[in-house]
């Protein structure tokens, strides 16, 4: 049974990916580890994939997405990194490169082995983890967690595991198609990148299984209902189940606030976070500029605003007229924006 695990990220998250793949390597040295990178190395960084804890790198260009550059321009960093999960998953199924494919967000890390997933995929074609496994009791938690996941998706797509045949392959094709066209952060339209789509999964794919084990995908959004215990035998358990992997979302003061709020006096949670922060610090390459993304700016360095991306992706005529939208100079999308008077005015950069 060949298992392939992949993650999707940019160089700004290389430290997190290193930690994830390092823990994967420790617990599953025989699983293939693939880094899908939608980015280019920052200037001065001599990126050597052979020195990294993953087996191979798949660059955005390797995915051969139709109208690649134009398609990429239509997405901000989060949209792009989540959207490429679909093509990679689908293409891996098509190529027959593995029997099982597991996706993990770069900001997850293993604290135990994931072999029960392989067993579960003997009887199911796919596995998803819901953000929440039980209702909240407090209003604040309801607002932070239950209501928020109604907007962003019932399942957390920081994890998905499929067989590369049967409904697993059908899911991969369907998700690929949807993400190529609609992987947008547009909550008013019912979209939250790759996640809201998967609310359909239990209805569309009856051989998919909702993983209800609290030891998987532990994160600040479900901590209010999960108690972490570290026994004298050295085992870490969550509500009595072995802790498998943690989702270290929002590393920094905001994440700390949410962790404090929901971990309460369960200090073991902070021990796990401290461990992760130490590993990140070790894995960090200080030469990579914070928030680096090679596709964040036009070729003259002008940061690309979100509304310019949205306009471009919504207008087939602009896509046809300017197939290389990152370029600047005469007869470019950038020049068109200037002529239209759209280069000025308040809007967020993304």
């Amino acid at each position: 049974m060949k298992v392939l695990v992949f993650s999707s990220f940019t160089f700004a998250y290389l430290d997190r990916a290193r930690v994830l793949f390092g823990t994967l390597k420790k617990h599953h040295p025989d699983w293939e580890r693939v880094a899908v990178i939608t980015d280019r190395p920052p200037p001065g960084i001599d990126f050597d994939p052979s020195a990294e804890p993953f087996d191979r790198v798949v660059w955005f260009e390797d995915l051969n997405i139709p109208r690649g550059e134009g398609w990429l321009f239509g997405h901000d960093i989060v949209e792009a990194c989540t959207a490429v999960k679909g093509p990679f998953l689908h293409q891996t199924c098509e190529a027959g490169d593995a029997d099982i494919v597991i996706y993990l967000d770069p900001d997850t890390a293993l604290l135990n082995d994931l072999s029960p997933l392989v067993k579960a995929l003997q009887t199911h074609d796919g596995l998803l983890t819901p953000h929440l496994l039980e209702p909240e009791d407090e209003l604040q938690a309801l607002l932070d967690n239950e209501l928020a996941t109604l907007r962003t998706g019932i399942f957390n797509l920081g994890f998905v595991a499929i067989r590369t045949t049967g409904q697993g392959a059908r899911f991969a094709r369907w998700w690929n198609d949807r993400l190529l066209a609609f992987c947008h952060d547009d909550i008013p339209k019912g979209l939250f990148v790759d996640q809201r789509w998967c609310d359909h999964v239990p209805a569309f794919f009856d051989r998919f299984h909702v993983l209800r084990d609290p030891g998987y995908n532990v994160a600040s959004w479900n901590l209010s209902k999960r108690k972490v215990h570290i026994g004298l035998d050295g085992a870490i358990t969550v509500n009595g189940s072995p802790l498998r992997f943690w989702h270290f979302t929002k590393l920094g003061p905001t994440g700390d606030t949410m962790t404090r709020r929901y971990a309460g006096t369960n200090f073991e949670v902070h021990e796990i976070w401290n461990w992760y922060k130490r590993l990140i610090e070790e894995a960090r390459d200080p030469r990579i500029p914070p928030r680096w993304w090679a596709f964040a700016a036009f070729d003259d360095g002008t940061p690309i605003r979100k509304d310019w991306r949205e306009l471009y992706r919504d207008r087939a005529d602009l896509q046809a007229a300017f197939p290389e939208p990152f370029r600047t100079g005469p007869n470019t999308y950038h020049a068109w924006l200037a002529v239209e008077g759209r280069l000025t005015g308040p809007a967020s950069v993304a």
Binding site: L111, I230, G231, D233, G234, A235, I236, L243, E271, W275
Partner: peptide, 9 residues
């Protein structure tokens, strides 16, 4: 080799 020693400083 336990998980506890893995996370412990």
């Amino acid at each position: 080799d336990s998980a506890a020693c893995e996370i412990c400083s």
